[in-house]
Amino acid sequence: MDLSSTVSGHYTIITVNAPRIDSAAAIQFKDAMRAATQNAAGTIVLDLGHVGFIDSSGLGAVVASMKQLSGGQRLDLAALKPDVAKVFRLTRMGSIFQIHENLDALPHAKAG
């Protein structure tokens, strides 16, 4: 699974460069996330702007990616496409993830 990581101010933005996080891709996604988040500082934002489809295995892998973070790290989600947003909305993931409309909508972090 191809992930790219960008540091922007207070945020580490991890972009998923794949069209699907499904059953066939879930384990690779979780492993790639472990590597990408290991030394990430600040708030980690998972940019799902290229992901058109996610199933419950992919959803579980996103939750698992959050659970494998260290205590001080947090994971937000951004740029959900309609079918992905539908899965997150129906399963009420908004109660455990902060979901941003797009990357431009990230709240401006205070310096320091």
Binding site: L59, V63, V87, T91, R92
Partner: peptide
């Protein structure tokens, strides 16, 4: 049924969403 999403991070569910989605839709 939707698995409970309350509770500490290590206890959050990673599965059990599939039949919930089927039945919801």
């Amino acid at each position: 049924q939707l698995p409970p999403l309350a509770g500490p991070r290590p206890e959050l569910p990673e599965g059990g969403f599939g039949w919930f989605l089927i039945r919801a839709l």
